[in-house]
Design a protein around this nucleic acid. Structure first.
Lengths: 335, 335
DNA sequence: GTGAAAGCGCTAACAT
DNA sequence: ATGTTAGCGCTTTCAC
């Protein structure tokens, strides 16, 4: 049993397809009686306009594409929830792609989305991406592009970022103000601006408070796997650091776990601070102080910006950059 | 600058659109010279077939819809990754919907996906769903439906589930075999079969090993919010339980954290076991014993089953049920 | 081996 | 207020 079409309704009601089309969309030129009659019949027969046909006509399909580098991740899944909510509000569907931190797959995702003729794309760059032609192609195809969080510096387009610098700065300042003197930073490769910004926030806070900088305390360590090697070495220094600021909650949580098992008392011997404020922070012992990135809000903001661009409601000509404020959430793992 | 179409190529090469169409798809009736010429021109001018037009013709859009109840969740985001990978292999796009554990929104998601004319739907039911008409409508519209994990018992369709019962049974048996005698269960509302099955696994393991069942030890507590109230009461019993089996890792992780803060030694005084084996298990202190649900594999399996149905490759007539094996992963939180 | 024509379901410009 | 016509970009008879 095939879906009923406009034509079927027209035939049944002895009207023309265009009248039916207009009646369905409450076109003012249609008489109330006809409109009522048509809509009643349509409802009774569960008529659904075929979006494909409409899209072919209008060359618009009310779909936006999302590319996330890693979905099994508190921040990105939270952002996706925000994107989805905002898209739903404006009746956009979400085509979901997952690059899995893989450049090749990111390129393929772009192709997929362009082939599907999405109206716009929200993207967060993978860690391994060093070429940007695929992103440039989006723009060359006149498809709107908004980067969120992991922006691509090589491409000049709208973006929504978190104030990583200020978040890191505030966190490290908090550590200093609560009496920590030897503060380590476990960061990420500086390929990503977010990583650079956080490192700079850390370094500037030390500088401001006249604490020495020690390369041995400033290390790339952004996964639990790396943490298993690096944190033991770090804590084996003598004296060991009295605070560790980590680029994400996973590393920070592992850090509290390992340090505790080594007999460190957190936060008295060692303060630990994470970044993201995921639910991990609620289940470590003690609870983890962390910098909240407001992923949901970032997703919403990015989606709203993209939709406004698509619908011509964002009037600003050049690049729009929105900044989401971070917030230091102090819990039990810092003094 | 508009995308180039078949017609444009036809005009440029002085051919008919149908010839171009055939040449592009390597139709045997087309001479090699023509084919070469057409494909060369197409490549040079970056011709992309308009999927909308093709879809309108064939009434198929190579898109499958996914409805997850909660995306900020290790299991579901892992499953989504599996779904996406499998869909990509067969060139299906993924339309993503998020019910957020809300019945109304689940209904709207179904409407959205049916309106978008997806070829099939993968769904995991929300906790608040008690009516199934929206799911029945999917089937009535001849759209394939596969439930995964949170299946809907009211609907007779393909499903992929985890062997919750066996997982729970094995976990509790492990607690018993390592000497625990007073084992509590923190479960979920029995609206969901997965919750029922886990509870039955727990109860049967106790029965099998002739341990008494105590309603005070068998409580609904599936969120950290509930855990904050319930776990303190539970541990205040005298004597307190010597093991807690939790329906998810969040509750289990909170449990280790709270118990530790109360001076319990885990696992000597209290064994704690979770369910899912998310990355939470790696960052608690001690690391959490948990039942691995293999979310990625479940996602893959569900997507494959759906795609096979869509493409007529799954020949079995009636309902297909696939079972994903769980696996008890013993870490530090149990003796 | 290639082309002409019809049509997928819808909308919009142009009648009337 | 309603109908007629054309066309979105493609595929697929049916001719030749």
């Amino acid at each position: 049993m095939r879906q009923i079409t406009l034509k079927d309704i027209a035939k049944a009601l002895d009207l023309s397809p265009s009248t039916v089309s207009r009646a369905m969309r409450n076109h003012p030129a249609i008489s109330v009686t006809t409109r009522k009659k048509v809509q009643k019949y349509a409802a009774e027969h569960k008529y659904k306009p075929n979006p494909l046909a409409m899209q072919l006509r209008t060359n618009r399909n009310n779909t936006i594409g999302v590319i996330v580098p890693e979905i099994v991740h508190y921040f990105f899944s939270t952002a996706l929830a925000g994107i989805q909510d905002e898209a739903e509000k404006s009746n956009y569907n979400l085509l979901f792609c997952h690059s899995n931190e893989d450049y090749e797959r990111e390129v393929r995702s772009v192709t997929t989305l362009l082939d599907a003729r999405v109206c716009g794309i929200l993207a967060s760059q993978s860690k391994t991406t060093r070429e940007f032609n695929h992103f440039q192609e989006i723009i060359d195809n006149n498809v709107h592009l908004v980067f969120f969080d992991r922006i691509c510096t090589g491409i000049n387009t709208d973006k929504v970022v978190v104030d990583d610098y200020a978040g890191a700065y505030k966190a490290v300042e908090h550590l200093i103000e609560t009496g920590c003197k030897k503060i380590a930073y476990l960061g990420a490769t500086s390929l990503l601006p977010i990583a650079n910004n956080r490192r700079m926030g850390y370094e500037d806070a030390l500088r401001k408070h006249k604490l020495p900088m020690d390369p041995k305390l400033n290390i790339v360590c952004d996964t639990v796997e790396l943490a298993r090697e690096i944190i033991p070495e770090m804590l084996a220094q003598s004296p060991p650091p009295d605070a560790i600021f980590c680029i994400n909650d996973e590393v920070a949580a592992y850090c509290t776990q390992f340090a505790t098992s080594m007999g460190f008392n957190i936060p008295d011997d060692l303060s630990v601070c994470g970044f993201t404020n995921s639910y991990l922070t609620e289940v470590t012992y003690p609870k983890l102080t962390s910098v909240d990135q407001h992923g949901y809000k970032m997703g919403q903001t990015a989606a709203r910006l993209l939709i406004n661009r698509i619908e011509g409601k964002e009037t600003k000509r050049g690049v729009v950059s929105r900044l989401i404020k971070t917030e230091l959430v102090v819990k039990g793992s810092t003094r």
